[in-house]
Structure formats: C-alpha cells, structure tokens
Simulated scan of single mutants.
Amino acid sequence: MTTPRTLYLFCSAAPPVFDVARVVEEAQRDGWDVCLGLTPTAAEWLEEGLEGLAALTGHPVRRSYKRPGEPDAWPKADVILFAPATFNSINAWALGLTDKFVVGVVAEGIGKGIPLVAMPCVNSAYVQHPAFDQSVRTLREAGVTVLYGEDGFMPNQPGQGRPDGYPWRLALDAARASARA
C-alpha cells in the first residue's frame, strides 16, 4: 500500500473558505493526506467547525506557529495550496511578512523548494492597487504557480462575490500537477 502524498491546504478569510470541508473531501478522494492551515480570521470564521475539520483531516487545524522545540504535528508537505488567498495574504507573502503562520510557511516553502500553488480571491477594486500585480509577479518569479487571470481566478465586482463559483477544482488540479513536476 502506498502512502498518500501530503497536501497542505492553506486558506485566508474569503467567502470560499466556508466550502473547505467539501474541498478537503475532494482532495482526499484524489489521494491526498490533507493538513489544513488557516489565517487567524479564517479560523475565527470557521471556529464552530474546527474540531470537525480536524477529525476530517486527521490532523490538527493550525492557525499559529508551534513553540520552539515542539514536535511538528503534520507530515512534510509534498505541495502547498494557498486558496483562497486574499489581497492581504498575497501581498504579505510577496513581501516576506510572516506574522501569520500560513504566510510564514509558504514564504519559507520558496526557499525549501516545496511546490507552491496560490489562487487569489480578490475583488476588482483590490486588484487596481499597484501592489497586487507586483506581488503576483514577485511570487511567479519565485516559482509559485499563481492561478490568477484568464487561466485562474477572475476578480468579481466589490460586494458581488461568487463563493460557489470559486474554481476549487482548478486549484486542486494545479496542486497535483505541481507535486508531479
């Protein structure tokens, strides 16, 4: 019997995060051992379901760094998928601002050579800010697969989110392809 590959699924606080249990199940059907990491706000949004998500994945849901000397509760990642990734998370990652656990792991993942996939969830007003395009470019130049634009997430108008239209399958397929590469 083969050991499943490990997918770290990291999520920011954007409406598609409410569908994360279904996405975990879909990833598990694809053969992944899923470890779920959340930004603090995403963890707050999902607070009532965190125990269930931990039971679903078989791993603790993480939102903060472990203490020095503590053993790691997760196996090593074969790939990290950061979706939905908010405007704040994308910019913090590109700038190396690692006060949030999930951003710290993906920032370090660049240097460790872990395959990284990000799919933003931002509205069309946020993407007008010049930092966003620069951050996407910076991450792509660092080897991160950023699913944004015609071949990925397309921004919606402010206040007109489409959480049910978030292309989770595209993100999972890109993670699988990145892990194979």
Rank of each mutant, 00 (worst) to 15 (best):
A54Y: 01
A54S: 09
A54W: 01
L56P: 00
T57S: 00
G58R: 03
G58C: 03
R62Y: 05
R62C: 07
R63Y: 11
R63C: 12
K66Q: 14
K66H: 14
K66A: 15
P68C: 15
P68F: 15
G69F: 12
G69I: 09
G69P: 02
G69L: 15
E70S: 11
P71C: 09
D72E: 13
A73N: 01
P75H: 00
D78P: 01
V79M: 05
V79N: 01
I80A: 10
L81P: 07
L81G: 02
A83I: 04
A83R: 03
P84G: 05
F87L: 12
N88F: 13
N88I: 12
S89L: 06
S89Y: 04
I90M: 15
I90P: 05
A92F: 13
A92C: 13
W93G: 04
A94P: 07
L95D: 14
G96D: 07
T98H: 07
D99C: 12
F101E: 13
F101M: 13
V102Q: 03
V103H: 10
V103P: 03
G104Q: 10
G104S: 09
G104D: 10
V105A: 06
V106H: 08
A107W: 06
A107C: 05
G109H: 00
I110P: 03
I110D: 02
G111D: 09
G111K: 12
G113K: 07
G113A: 07
I114K: 04
P115I: 02
L116W: 00
A118Q: 02
P120S: 07
P120L: 04
C121H: 13
C121A: 13
V122S: 04
S124I: 08
A125T: 12
H129T: 07
H129W: 08
A131L: 13
A131C: 13
S135V: 04
L139D: 05
L139V: 08
G143R: 10
V146M: 10
D151I: 05
D151C: 08
F153K: 03
N156Q: 09
P158V: 12
Q160S: 12
G161N: 08
R162F: 02
P163M: 05
P163A: 04
D164N: 10
G165T: 11
Y166K: 06
P167G: 04
W168E: 06
W168R: 07
R169L: 14
R169A: 15
L170V: 14
A171L: 01
L172H: 00
D173V: 14
R176W: 15
A177K: 15
